[in-house]
Amino acid sequence: MWCQLFLYHINPWENRKQLFEQVGVQFQESNYPDKIRVRELCEETACLYRQPSSYGELLQKFGLADKREAFVSELSGGQKQKLFIVLALIPNPKVAFLDELTTGLDTKARRGVWKSLQELKEQGLTIFLSSHFMDEVEILCDRIGILKDGRFVFEGTVQEAVDLSPYERLEDVYLWFTGEEETGDE
């Protein structure tokens, strides 16, 4: 099946440069060169965009200002995740894609990242978040989509999802939608 996808009326295959000026992406795995410092990684990212945000301010905002000269590899898990949010925000994007942002973080670091995301939302940034944690989804997301075998089986608000299913907790709702509720007994 052929599908054509447009984001902000831009075809991502024909005009990828134009589109990626407006998009911020954070990947699940952290990917950066060995022996690179926080400031250098930010500089390299910022120089690729026409109108980047000030990474100094972003680092400040995410509590990483004192880590500017540290090696990225020396940061803690939570600090790294925050740095990757900073990198995703450097383009000054209209939309940010964040992939399993809080996997592997301790409770405190997770809460810190949530707070940052809430603030970004309030400023009007569109965020696509993928997550395995239903508590996170309930707190952060205005609209959710549930994927099964690569296709949406539900799209709407958390409340709508709960109403459609026989369950109350989003975790149970999720399992019900994906048809995996029984597998726990095997």
Binding site: R16, K17, Q18, F20, E21, V23, V25, F27, E29, N31, Y32, P33, T45, L48, Y49, R50, P91
Partner: peptide, 12 residues
Amino acid sequence: KKILKRYKVTPT
């Protein structure tokens, strides 16, 4: 290291 993958989604 997937560094190129990160560059893929930038305007470069």
